[in-house]
Design a binder for these strands. Structure first.
Lengths: 347, 347
DNA sequence: TACGCCACCGGAAGCGGTTCCACATTCGAA
DNA sequence: TTCGAATGTGGAACCGCTTCCGGTGGCGTA
C-alpha cells in the first residue's frame, strides 16, 4: 500500500511538504504543489482516512440516526440527506435502530465511538439522559422532527398541518369530518400524532362542528393499517363521516381503497385528504399537504454542514431555515363539497 | 477526552495491558482484567476507533452502495442489511449514488478511502474497470442482484420469476397475456428486466400462445409509470389482453388502478400478477411472487460478515446460501380464470 | 535442585498522516 | 543598505491505540 511518504520521495520533497501540498493547508510553492500532485496521481495515492482522522480529529463522517429505513418518510428524508452529504465529500454512517430494538445500543455504543463529525437524527424522541449523552459527544447535532433542548431542530408546524387539512374540508362545507391519526404515545413520531390531531380539533371546534369520538380513530402510518381502520369507520351508512382527515398520505390511500371496496365514491360520497405529497398520491388524485419531505433532509444536511464549516456556497449563516419549514396545499380531486343527495340521512 | 492511558493509570497497569484487557486479545489475569474494566467503565472510556483502526487495519465498517435509497426495493434490502450489520457491531456507511449521478465519484473517491472492511453492492451494474477497481481494494465484496466476475454474488433466478408469473396465468387458461417490464438498457436493474421478460416469452411460447408486440410494454418500476402505460395498453376493448404479467408489484398496482379507472373488474375482466410481495399487495389482493427482499439483505450481510470472520453463530461455511435465493408464489385474488362472458370478442 | 515452559506484564515501535517549530530565502519598506 | 515580515521547506513530535518483543516469576517435571 502506498503512503504519503512514497509520494514525498517520488516528488523529492519532505513528507510534511507533501502533506501540505495535497491538503491545501499551509503554504507550498506552486510548482512544488504540482509536482506532488503529479506524483500522487501517478502512484494512485489515497490518503488513509484513519490516519488523517487520528491526526486532525476530524473524520469527514456524518451519522444519521433513524428508526425505520424502509418506511417511505424516512427513506425519502435519507435520500435528501445523502445527496448533500456526499456532495460535500462526507461519508454517511447510517444507524437504523428498527423501531427501538437497537435503540440503546445505537445510543450507547455506536454513537460514542468518536468517529463522527456530526449527527442528524430523524423522528427520534430522546429522553434527557439520551440527549445529554448525545450532547456530550461535543459535536454538532441536528434533529429533524423533534425539538430537543440544546439541539438544533428542524420541525414542521404539525399543528398547522392538522388545522390546514381540516380547514380545507370545513371550507368545502363538510360538517361530518373524521380524523385518522397515529398513536400518541408511540415512540415514533411522538408529538407529531398529537399535534396533528390537536390541529384538527382546533379547526373543527372553530367551525362549531360536532366532534364524535367514534370519528377520531387511531392507526399506524401505513396503507394497510388505515385500510382496516377505515373499513369499520365507514361501515355504517347512517353514521359515517363525509370527509376524512388523515395524518399521512399512506393513511389516506388506505381510506380511499377501503371506500372503493365499500362501494363509496370519492369524492362524491367521501372526501379524503392526506399529508406528505407522497408520489402515490397523484394516481389516487389525492388532495394533500406537501411537507417537502426530501427537502427536510436537504435542509438538515445543509444546516449541519454549515455548522461544520463546509457549507455549499451561498448557504452560510446560522442554521439557515431551521425550524421554519414550508407547507403547501396540493388540491386534487379526492376532496369536494359534500353532495347530500349521495348520502343517507345523518343520524 | 480520556484515553486508554488514563484507564491504565487508574488501574495501575501499563497501557499495553489495559489494551489487552479491554480487547480480549492476549493474556491478562482475571483480576487485572476486572480492574481495568472497572476503571474504564468508571471513567466512561470509549476507544477511539480512528486510532484503533489505524493500528489494526480494520475499521469495523461496511460500505453499502446502491442507486436509490428512497425506492422500496432498495430501502427494504437496506433494512435487512442494517439489522445484521449493527448486530455484528459494525458500522454501515451508505453510498447512494442517486441513479448514476454520483456514480463515478462514489466509485473513485469514496470507496477507495480504505476505511471499509467490506462492501455490499445492491442492483449495481459495474463495468470491468469499476469491478477491477473495487477488487483492488482487497476487501471482500458481496453483490446483490448482479453477477460480476470475481465478486461473490447473490442473485435470484430472474428468468424463473418471469416464467412463473406467466405460467400461473397460462395455467388459469389465459391466452392473451401481456407483459410490463423495465427498460433493458437501463443502468439499473440491468439484466433483471431482460431476464424476466425472457422468462415470460419462454412460458408463453411453450404454451403455444400468440405474442403480440403491442402487449410487451416498457415502464419503469413505479406505480405511476405503470399506471400510465396500462391506461393505453387496456384502452381498446377489442384488443386488450385478459391478463398482465408485471415485473414488479408496484407496476402491478399501477395496472390494477388503471383497470379500475377504466371500469374493468379485476380479476373478472383482467388478471394481474406482480413480483416482490410488496406490503401494499395485500390491500390490492395482488397475486405475486415473493422474492424475500429483506432477506436478500440479511443474507448478503451474513455472507459478508462470514467472510470477515464475524458471522453470527451457526452461519459459518463458505458464503452460505449465496446465489440460491428462494421464491414463493403468493396467490391472492387479482388473478382468476378468464371469464369470456365478460370480455368482448377478441380480434 | 535445576531446568523449561507458560502465563502475565511493560517498554517501545509502529500504524500513516498532520502540524508545530525552526530555519533559510526572498522581498518590500524604512 | 538594513531589517522585519512573509514565504517555503524539513525535522520531529504527536494523534491514541495495538502488538511485537523481551523480561519476570511461578509451576511441573526430570
Amino acid at each position: 500500500m502506498i503512503g504519503i511518504k512514497d509520494v514525498a520521495r517520488a516528488a523529492g520533497v519532505s513528507q510534511a511538504t507533501a502533506s501540505r501540498a495535497l491538503s491545501g493547508r499551509g503554504s507550498v510553492s506552486e510548482q512544488t504543489r504540482d509536482r506532488v500532485r503529479a506524483a500522487a496521481a501517478d502512484l494512485g495515492f489515497q490518503v488513509s482516512y484513519h490516519a488523517s482522522s487520528l491526526a486532525t480529529g476530524r473524520s469527514r463522517n456524518i451519522g444519521v440516526v433513524l428508526p425505520y429505513v424502509n418506511r417511505w418518510y424516512f427513506s425519502t428524508v435519507l435520500g435528501g440527506l445523502t445527496r448533500q452529504i456526499i456532495d460535500a465529500g462526507y461519508d454517511l454512517t447510517l444507524y437504523d435502530f428498527r423501531g427501538g430494538l437497537h435503540r440503546q445500543s445505537v445510543l450507547n455504543d455506536f454513537l460514542l465511538r468518536k468517529r463522527l463529525d456530526g449527527v442528524i437524527t430523524v423522528g427520534l424522541r430522546l429522553d434527557d439522559a439520551d440527549a445529554t449523552r448525545l450532547l456530550s459527544l461535543g459535536i454538532p447535532i441536528v434533529s429533524i422532527g423533534g425539538s430537543l433542548p440544546g439541539i438544533a431542530s428542524l420541525t414542521v408546524d404539525e399543528r398547522a398541518i392538522g388545522r390546514l387539512t381540516a380547514d380545507h374540508l370545513v371550507s368545502l362545507g363538510h360538517t361530518r369530518i373524521a380524523h385518522i391519526g397515529g398513536e400518541h404515545e408511540s415512540d415514533l413520531y411522538f408529538h407529531i400524532s398529537r399535534s396533528r390531531r390537536e390541529g384538527y380539533h382546533a379547526s373543527v371546534d372553530a367551525a362549531g362542528l360536532e366532534r364524535r369520538s367514534a370519528w377520531s380513530v387511531i392507526s399506524d402510518y401505513t396503507v394497510n393499517s388505515a385500510y382496516a381502520v377505515a373499513k369499520s369507520l365507514l361501515a355504517d351508512p347512517h353514521n359515517r363521516p363525509t370527509a376524512v382527515c388523515c395524518a399521512s398520505d399512506e393513511m389516506a390511500i388506505g381510506v380511499i381503497l377501503a371506500a372503493r371496496d365499500l362501494g363509496l365514491h370519492v369524492p362524491e360520497q367521501l372526501s379524503v385528504i392526506g399529508v406528505d405529497n407522497h408520489p402515490l398520491g397523484a394516481v389516487f388524485q389525492l388532495t394533500t399537504i406537501d411537507q417537502f419531505v426530501e427537502e427536510q433532509g436537504t435542509r438538515a444536511a445543509l444546516a449541519l454542514l454549515d455548522e461544520l464549516g463546509d457549507a455549499q456556497e451561498g448557504s452560510s449563516g446560522v442554521l439557515p431555515g431551521l425550524s421554519e419549514l414550508p407547507l403547501e396545499m396540493v388540491v386534487r380531486s379526492s376532496t369536494a363539497a359534500p353532495d347530500e343527495t349521495q348520502n343517507p340521512t345523518f343520524q
